[in-house]
Each structure stands twice: as C-alpha cells, then as structure tokens.
Design a binder for these strands. Structure first.
Length: 283
DNA sequence: CGGCAAACCTGCGAGC
DNA sequence: TGCTCGCAGGTTTGCC
C-alpha cells in the first residue's frame, strides 16, 4: 500500500532500529523479486553497519559503512516488520530477513513480489537506472507552480496520468493523485497542458498538503511507527474521495430537503486505473 | 515520440 | 461453506 507517505513512515520507523547497527545475519529466501537479487546479496550486507535510512521517491535507501547503499522498493504489497527477538518464526513471503547487533529482526515481506532490493555504490545513486529519471521530491524546494507549468507544457495526457508519472513528480501514486486533484478542485480528465499558472500553483500546493497530512497521520497514529504486529508504515487515513464511489462528496453543499440530487463521488478508469473524483467541484 | 493496455504476482472481498 | 471473479496502493514493456 505504499506511496510516498507510507514509504516515508517506513523509513522513519526503520531508522532507529537500523542506524548504527551492524547486520549480524542476513537471509535471502527467494532468487528474485521484480528483478533478480545481485550476486551474493546477503553476504555483501552481512557484517556491514547501517549508517542511514532515507527515502527518494518511493524507494527506501539504506546506506552502509562500505559506501554501498541498499535500494529497496515495496511495490504494491511490500511491507517491513521489526521484531525484538533474533529467532522470529518465518512467515509466508518473508523474502529478506536481517538481524541486527541489538538482537532485533527486520523482515522484508512482499506477497506479490512487485518490490525489489538491490545494491549500488552510494556515490553512484543519482545515476542509477532506477533513480536517474525521477522528478523532483514534491516536498522539496524544486517542486512548485512554475515547475509544474513548465513540465506539463504541451502534454496531451490527462492530468491524473501526469501526476502518476514519476518523471513529473516523485512518489505520488493512485491514492494521492486522486486526493490532490480533489483538494485542488481540478478534474482528473483535464488535459495536463491546461494545468498552468495559478491552476498549477494550486495543484502543487495540494500535492504537498495531502502528502504532509498523510505523513503526519502515519506518525501520530502509531507508537514509534511500529504496530503490535511489528509492521511499519501502515496507518488509518480517511480519504476524501479515494475508494468512496457513491458516497457523498465531503465538500459539496448538503442538499437536505431542497430536492436537488445529492452530489456523490464518481469512479472512472484512466489508463487502466481507478480514479475517484467529484465532477461538480473538480473542473 | 507520446500515450495506452497488458503484464508481472498473490490475496481478499463480493457475489452466487 | 466454498467457489469464481474482479480488483488492488507500482512500474516496465511493447504496441499503435
């Protein structure tokens, strides 16, 4: 279930358990996820100390003390677990299991195997194939109305599809694309090129706001980001439109007894993926 | 070249 | 209860 806010929450949750810790034992239980693991993957992690856990787009980056970095992506179903014992029983789809010097177990679990884990020299991260074409971080300084206007210029795709394009902006997925468009009152079907000027400012601000809200919700609803199950990064978040087809649009005026039909959230499919929006408010 | 559907997998909920 | 179907939050590929 991971888009930028979930990945950010996972990183913040992993940090205190991994940073400064040596990986005393690493187990790789499957030859490949989305891609094959690198040669001797587990061996190359074993004995290394994790110096930092950080995020770029939807990627988790774990820097090691030998100037290599683990690049991990959760795909659709990837999850991280932390357990406080060294001999935790293996579960189904526990593909990578790491033990730390503190005696904790960190598990990468991914049922659908759309995720990935690989290694890259830290100095070469920017040029790595997985990262080099990714657009600006939406919470960073480079992402604003003018950037958006410039990047969307001439693009004939619907704005919803452009938001999902990681080259345009990093880390936005299907849920937050829907939610940001709703907040900005922009129709998901609008031509991307027509999102310019003030409209682009509005959308850039909405993307930032919705991601910040979601990260805050993640942080505040979990004790130390770890659930009883050991899972990191999961949180309850109430969406305005996502997965709410047929429900009342939260911001449309109530139609109590005026006789007007109530305004409800609509679902359409765009490039094969569900979009939820309010046709009344979003233009 | 841009834009779209299909493909990669398993799990889960709805409906019969 | 148990089966089948449709759908799922990501990304790449290959086709038009």
């Amino acid at each position: 279930m991971p888009e930028l806010p979930e990945v950010e929450t996972v990183c913040r949750g992993l940090g205190p358990h991994l940073e400064g810790q040596v990986l005393t034992r690493v187990e790789q239980n499957i030859p490949a996820l989305r891609f094959p693991f690198p040669d001797r993957f587990a061996d190359r992690l074993t004995g290394r100390t994790v110096t930092a856990v950080r995020r770029r787009a939807k990627y988790i980056l774990m820097d090691l003390d030998n100037d290599e970095t683990v690049i991990a992506h959760l795909g659709m179903s990837g999850r991280m677990f932390i357990f406080d014992d060294e001999h935790h029983e293996r579960g189904k789809h526990d593909h990578v299991v790491m033990q730390t010097g503190r005696g904790e177990t960190v598990i990468f679990n991914d049922a659908r195997r759309f995720g990935l884990m690989t290694l890259c020299p830290t100095a070469g991260l920017e040029e790595h194939k997985l990262l080099r074409d990714i657009g600006p971080e939406p919470l960073g300084n480079g992402f604003n109305g003018p950037y958006f206007t410039e990047t969307l210029r001439g693009r004939k795709t619907p704005i919803k599809a452009a938001l999902l394009d990681q080259k345009v902006v990093a880390g936005v997925g299907n849920i937050y694309a829907c939610e940001a468009l709703y907040r900005a009152r922009i129709s998901p079907r609008r031509l991307a090129a027509s999102v310019a000027g003030r409209r682009a400012e509005r959308l850039a601000a909405a993307v930032k706001a919705v991601l910040i809200d979601a990260i805050e919700a993640g942080g505040s609803s979990l004790r130390d980001y770890v659930q009883a199950s050991g899972e990191l990064g999961y949180f309850q978040h109430r969406f305005a439109v996502y997965d709410r087809e047929g429900e009342p649009c939260p911001d449309c005026p109530k139609t109590a007894d005026s006789g007007a039909k109530p305004c409800t959230v609509k679902r359409i499919v765009q490039s094969g993926r569900s979009t939820f929006y309010c046709p009344t408010l979003q233009r």
